[in-house]
Design a protein around this nucleic acid. Sequence first.
DNA 1: ACCCAGGTGGCCC
DNA 2: GGGCCACATGGG
Length: 212
Amino acid sequence: MEVYDKLFSCYGKRHWWPADTPFEVLIGAILTQNTNWKNAEKAIDNLKKTKNLNIEKIAKMEEKELENMIKPSGFYRQKAERLQNFCNFILEDFGSVEKMFRTNPKKLRSILLDFRGIGPETADSILLYAGELPFFVIDAYTKRIFRRIGYDIGNNYEEMRTFFENNIPKDVELYKEYHALIVELAKVFCRKKPLCGKCPVKNNCNTGKKNN
DNA sequence: ACCCAGGTGGCCC
DNA sequence: GGGCCACATGGG
């Protein structure tokens, strides 16, 4: 929480995951995988402009058409296929996104993880930002930053997630904000924006080397 | 001409 | 369990 307080006083509320609906979060979560959010956003805008940002539309449209719309997000072939499979899966097994989130959270998490194209980070992003469920999202930045500060947060995803969930209050809004602040801090480092004096990490810029 | 981005899955040892 | 690799576009 000490780190959170510093980050919050530095960067304030992040207004993260801009999306009009939970469904838009699900789509964005897959489109932004290993992709700059700007590019994922272009793909979402294409879907919006053509009135295709809708679970039935995406489930039923021609795969090639979907591929073309989401091209800016990269990995567009596998993402198109996974998006369509996921939409069909939700419709068939739950009926709607809303009904899907009525499933027991832990059960739902394991269902999401079993799905091809949804790994731990995407699953938790969906659960947290679309489902309003308290699962802490871990990404590469979280790992790098907290190791650098000197925390032993664990080695694999599950260890790191439970580290955070055991050490901060179980609160959805806090989880959302904390993850967003971590990403903001990482951007400050990697993109050489001015560093806030209260920042918890004061070393030199990490210019993008992985596994730090 | 690189390097990276709000990862994941497959294959190898 | 980790260490590589493919997947693909757009920005710096």
